[in-house]
Nucleic acid binder design. Structure first.
Lengths: 340, 340
DNA sequence: CGCCTCTGTCGAACCGGTTCGAGGGAAGCT
DNA sequence: AGCTTCCCTCGAACCGGTTCGACAGAGGCG
């Protein structure tokens, strides 16, 4: 069943059916009604491939996220969900592409074969070959995250520097002097992931500013790594009284190791960091943290992309978000029993 | 840049280029090399829409999952990840569709507009209008989960009945007599979600068999609901010494409420259930549970779908999985201090 | 009454691939 | 040399939409 079938049943030409559907030229009420009736009867829907071929738009956007090798985190799920939903609101579909790099087969499929009108990139690196590639091709993209040269791109970012610094100030205000930083996995840091870098930067600078003694660690994206990481921290300096983490997936392990070491949170040890709100609430005590507004970021990314698609050549736009720290129950004043 | 461009630069006809690429007819080595060289030079990739239009296959599969209204759980993330990866291995893309029902706009887009060759459905209901609809249309689908009539469909399922029963037997063997069941949210149970129903069934029957006293609860998919649920359980019958849960997202809240009520896990209270392994490991003590093999299920679903696409009209196939309970640290013998 | 304008519809071309039938030319055979 | 066979390549039609230019007929105007 195709547009020709509809046309002949309604006694009109194919182009008239097309115009009746798109509204791009006037069609008499009579004709329109007749066509609509046939369409309703047969449940006709225009073929997406044919439409895409003819007008050059697929009404699909690509969501590029890193392959599962590195475990998925809850935050990524929130991004995916909100992007899909926002796209649906704009009558667009979302194609998932697990691509770490420029040269990925899947990435090439998206672009080269023109499966999507634009792309949203997750897990941005400071030097991101995907961004460079897309920019060179003048292919519409929006990043969730910022590269090292944020001025010439479209993105929705989190001010990791400021957020990590806020965590440090929060802890320093509570009197903590020896603080550890639990970063994302080492290979991500080495690969140049922006959250890992900017977070580390913000942490280090703020700590220096406040004269804190710090140690920084990388930690795998799972509970076991988190546990091992805290054991290492307490081994390296048992007088440590607080930590800041960007690593959502390790959170459960961090808490476990602290409990096993006999450090009560928040009495003996404070924990804070940058984590999506609903994951901060699953641990006990609930995590005082800068809540990553993942859903909002996904939604805004889609909106920027739609804007970019509608106005080719428009000047780059972006949003830098810096949510406040939500005070929950995992931080407290230093000193009570810490050095016991 | 299109196939005609390649053809003229290589000095051959468009059809020859097509055959050289698809291999569906022999092409001389000379010609093939010349064509390949031009293609490499220009970085040509055939347009996906045009190809889909011509041969009727989009090389895309739809992954239908419920809208975010009900929070996403970690398990769903694992499904999505493994489906995308398995599909990529078969040179297929994955289109995400947030559709609860048959009549969803997004669902209609997938099918009516022929955006995908087949669909994988998540969060199956015992009476599932999406399944009925697809079956009526003879549209290729594979479900992650079973409907009430599993014999005539393609699916990869988990034997929730057996798993919930295994949890009950495990607890009964440890001497527990009063056990609670923490199910998925009430609206999902009412809507007929299969895991909620079959899990409840298996729990209830096994408990009756072992002569246990039970209460069953529904619980929202978040920590706060889990906390409230345990409070209710302990209020309704303070002598309860164990619970079985299907609700991964509430797990943190369940633990919190137990701790706040002064029930030590596993000394005073045992917790078990059906939960994806890596989430079972984030809580302390780590959860003794039937680990949902989400990644394997996603992969198998894709493989079934590929099989179904390649052999239209083949007899339905399915896999029913029933992983064993992984003994971790959240269950123990009843009685020690339980009635204190 | 003739001319012009405006509205609504049509046919044809096009998007970029795939596929079918036909045919040119070299090789094999007698 | 003449015929068949086989290998390779070509042109044309097709997939199902969109869009452009053309044009018929109704209505307005002088």
């Amino acid at each position: 069943m195709n547009i020709g079938e509809i046309a002949s049943r309604a006694g009109v030409s194919r182009s008239t059916v097309s115009y009746a559907l798109s509204g791009k030229r006037p069609v008499s009420d009579d004709t329109r009604r007749k066509i609509q009736q046939v369409i309703d009867e047969l449940g006709y829907r225009p073929n997406a491939s044919a439409r895409a071929l003819a007008n050059g738009r697929t009404s699909t956007i690509g969501l590029v996220f890193p392959p599962a090798g590195n475990h998925y985190t809850g935050m990524q799920l929130d991004f995916i969900g909100s992007v899909v939903e926002a796209a649906a609101a704009h009558d667009h579909d979302v194609l998932l592409s697990p691509s770490g790099a420029d040269s990925d087969r899947s990435f090439q499929r998206l672009l080269g074969e023109r499966r999507v009108d634009g792309a949203i990139l997750m897990e941005i690196r400071l030097e991101d070959d995907r961004v460079d590639h897309l920019t060179a091709l003048d292919f519409p993209w929006v990043a969730i995250g910022r590269t090292g040269r944020p001025e010439d791109g479209w993105w929705v970012g989190l001010d990791h520097t400021a957020l990590a610094a806020a965590c440090v100030h929060h802890l320093a205000d509570l009197g903590h002097r020896k603080v550890a930083f639990v970063n994302r996995p080492e290979q991500l840091l080495r690969a140049g992931y922006e959250s890992a870098h900017r977070g580390l930067d913000g942490f280090t600078k703020a700590a220096a500013e406040r004269g804190l003694t710090v140690r920084t660690y990388c930690c795998g994206d799972d509970a076991a790594s988190g546990q091992a990481c805290v054991e290492q921290i307490l081994h390296d300096d048992p007088a440590t009284t607080a930590l800041v983490t960007l690593n959502e997936a390790a959170l459960g392990g961090l808490y476990r190791a602290l409990a096993q070491a006999g450090r009560h949170v928040p009495r003996d040890f404070s924990v804070t960091g940058v984590v999506a709100g609903r994951w901060a609430e699953t641990v006990t005590p609930q995590l005082t943290a800068a809540d990553v507004p993942a859903a909002e970021m996904g939604r805004r990314a889609v909106e920027l992309l739609m804007e970019r698609l509608d106005h080719q050549g428009a000047a780059p736009r972006h949003h830098l978000l810096a949510p406040p720290i939500s005070l929950r129950a995992s931080t407290g004043p230093a000193g009570a029993t810490a050095t016991a």
